Structure formats: C-alpha cells, structure tokens
Simulated assay, not measured.
Amino acid sequence: MSVPDFARYRLFLDQPFSAGAALPLEREQANYLLNVLRLRVDGTVLVFNGRDGEWLARLVPEGRKQANLELVRQTRPQPPASDLHYLFAPLKHARLDYMAQKAVEMGAGLLQPVLTRRTQVSRLNLDRLRANAIEAAEQCGILSLPAIEPERPLDAALSDLAPERLLIFCDEGLADASPVPALAQCKPAPLAVLIGPEGGFDEAERTLIRARPNTLPISLGPRILRADTAAVAALALVQAVVGDWSRI
C-alpha cells in the first residue's frame, strides 16, 4: 500500500483527471492556495477526485485571486471503494459533523442516516455531510469518498440492506459482554454497522432490528457512550476484528 504524502496540501476537485490537464479552481480554493498558503508559480499540491487516484498538481496563478492547477503525474492509484455501510440516527450540528468525519476516517464507504422514534433531527443537510466527508478525506490521505444517502425511516433502511450483508447492531440494551468473540466468529461478508440515537432504540425498534436475518447484536461495553463516541468505538472495533484492519 502506498503511503500518503502529508507534507503537501491535499485538495478535492470534482473534475476528471488526465496528465497535463489544466483544472480551474473555485475562487475560494484559489484564494486559499494563493493568499493563505502563499503558494507561488509552480508550487505543488496533491489533488484527488474519488475516481482517478491522487495526482501531483502545479499551481498556475492567473492574477491575485484566480488560478488553475496543472496535473503533473499520478502519485497514488485509486483503491477499491470501501464496502462498509454505516447506518446512524442523525445528531445535531457539530456532533453530526464530528460523527461524519470520523466515520470517513474509519473507512465507511456509505453513510445512511436513519430516522427512529427518538431521533432528534428529521431533515439533514446532505451538502454539509458531503463537505465534512471531503474535509476528512483531504486531511487523512483518503482517496475514496463515501456515498451519502438521504435520510430514511428505520424499517426502510433495514429493508434496503442486501440479505447477504451482515448487520452489526450496537444494542445498548444488551447485557455487558465482550463483542470480540462474537465478531471473531463471523464469516467474511459485506458489513453494515447500526448506531442508534441519543436515548437509544425503543423496544419495538429493537425487536424489528433483531428480527432481520443476518443481524449480529453486540454490546459496546459497560459504559454509556454518547452516540458520536459510540460511532467511533463501534467502527474501530469492527474494522479491527472483521474489517480491513484485520487483513493488514
């Protein structure tokens, strides 16, 4: 696996890449490179679009506030997209921003907001979710952005999961027990992780989730975790035992 270069600034550009191509920058992007980072002619950054790998790009200023980037060469090829689905009850504002960023850092390949009876937020700003995903990817050397789905009711989100996808249900009502042995017994399969809202799922929802075939309820330990903390704990646990950390 190639090692990211963190010495250079990384920028997401939603444009097709090819050697020698000149990519126009948005005004805010150009201003940041020219007037905040103070890059000059031929200064270099790394760019990615989630499809064509990572590229070294040379800055071509066009005045004080405009600039293009000229693609020089590919520095890392595009890896396969992660197949880990993350289902979560939306939170408010900064905590949702944090959750989205950490889910991307932990390797989620799809973000699916789920509406439950105790969900505090009924409508999401998907552009803001995407912006948080891009920010996390830029800062952490990630090349693939997750798919971001519109919010869906819990029953519909469960129905959308393919039967062969193992749903790891982080059940706050489960008796304290180590989740590692249960996860270690799982056969290789596509994975999904489900985290509930503040206040947890109600009993009818827990029954609905448990009734889905190919669902594994697990405990996250003896302490009560906030929903955003539970997200990080669950994704780290799953990646370490049955996810891509376990295959390194």
Rank of each mutant, 00 (worst) to 15 (best):
residue 175 A to C: 09
residue 175 A to N: 07
residue 175 A to R: 12
residue 176 D to L: 10
residue 177 A to S: 14
residue 177 A to K: 06
residue 177 A to Q: 13
residue 177 A to L: 10
residue 177 A to F: 00
residue 177 A to I: 08
residue 177 A to R: 11
residue 178 S to D: 12
residue 178 S to P: 07
residue 178 S to C: 06
residue 179 P to Q: 06
residue 179 P to K: 08
residue 179 P to D: 12
residue 179 P to E: 08
residue 180 V to I: 13
residue 180 V to C: 09
residue 180 V to N: 05
residue 180 V to K: 08
residue 181 P to S: 06
residue 181 P to T: 14
residue 182 A to M: 12
residue 182 A to Y: 11
residue 183 L to G: 04
residue 183 L to E: 10
residue 183 L to V: 11
residue 183 L to M: 10
residue 184 A to C: 13
residue 184 A to W: 12
residue 184 A to Y: 11
residue 184 A to G: 15
residue 185 Q to D: 14
residue 185 Q to T: 15
residue 185 Q to F: 08
residue 185 Q to V: 14
residue 185 Q to P: 11
residue 186 C to W: 15
residue 186 C to E: 14
residue 186 C to D: 14
residue 186 C to K: 15
residue 187 K to T: 14
residue 188 P to Y: 09
residue 189 A to G: 14
residue 189 A to P: 11
residue 189 A to D: 10
residue 189 A to M: 15
residue 190 P to C: 08
residue 190 P to G: 13
residue 190 P to N: 12
residue 191 L to D: 06
residue 191 L to I: 09
residue 191 L to V: 11
residue 192 A to Q: 05
residue 192 A to C: 03
residue 192 A to M: 03
residue 193 V to N: 01
residue 193 V to D: 03
residue 193 V to C: 04
residue 195 I to Q: 08
residue 195 I to R: 05
residue 195 I to L: 06
residue 196 G to I: 06
residue 196 G to V: 07
residue 197 P to F: 01
residue 197 P to V: 13
residue 198 E to R: 04
residue 198 E to D: 08
residue 199 G to R: 01
residue 199 G to D: 01
residue 199 G to F: 00
residue 199 G to S: 07
residue 199 G to Y: 03
residue 200 G to E: 02
residue 200 G to W: 01
residue 200 G to K: 04
residue 201 F to M: 10
residue 201 F to Q: 12
residue 202 D to I: 09
residue 202 D to V: 10
residue 202 D to R: 09
residue 202 D to P: 04
residue 202 D to Y: 01
residue 202 D to E: 11
residue 202 D to F: 02
residue 203 E to T: 12
residue 203 E to V: 13
residue 204 A to F: 05
residue 204 A to N: 13
residue 204 A to P: 06
residue 204 A to H: 12
residue 204 A to G: 15
residue 205 E to A: 02
residue 205 E to P: 06
residue 206 R to H: 10
residue 206 R to T: 14
residue 206 R to C: 09
residue 206 R to M: 03
residue 206 R to A: 05
residue 206 R to P: 06
residue 206 R to N: 08
residue 207 T to E: 06
residue 207 T to V: 14
residue 207 T to H: 10
residue 208 L to S: 04
residue 209 I to S: 00
residue 210 R to D: 05
residue 210 R to H: 05
residue 211 A to Y: 07
residue 212 R to H: 00
residue 212 R to W: 00
residue 213 P to H: 01
residue 213 P to V: 08
residue 213 P to M: 01
residue 213 P to F: 01
residue 214 N to G: 01
residue 214 N to P: 04
residue 215 T to F: 00
residue 215 T to E: 02
residue 215 T to C: 02
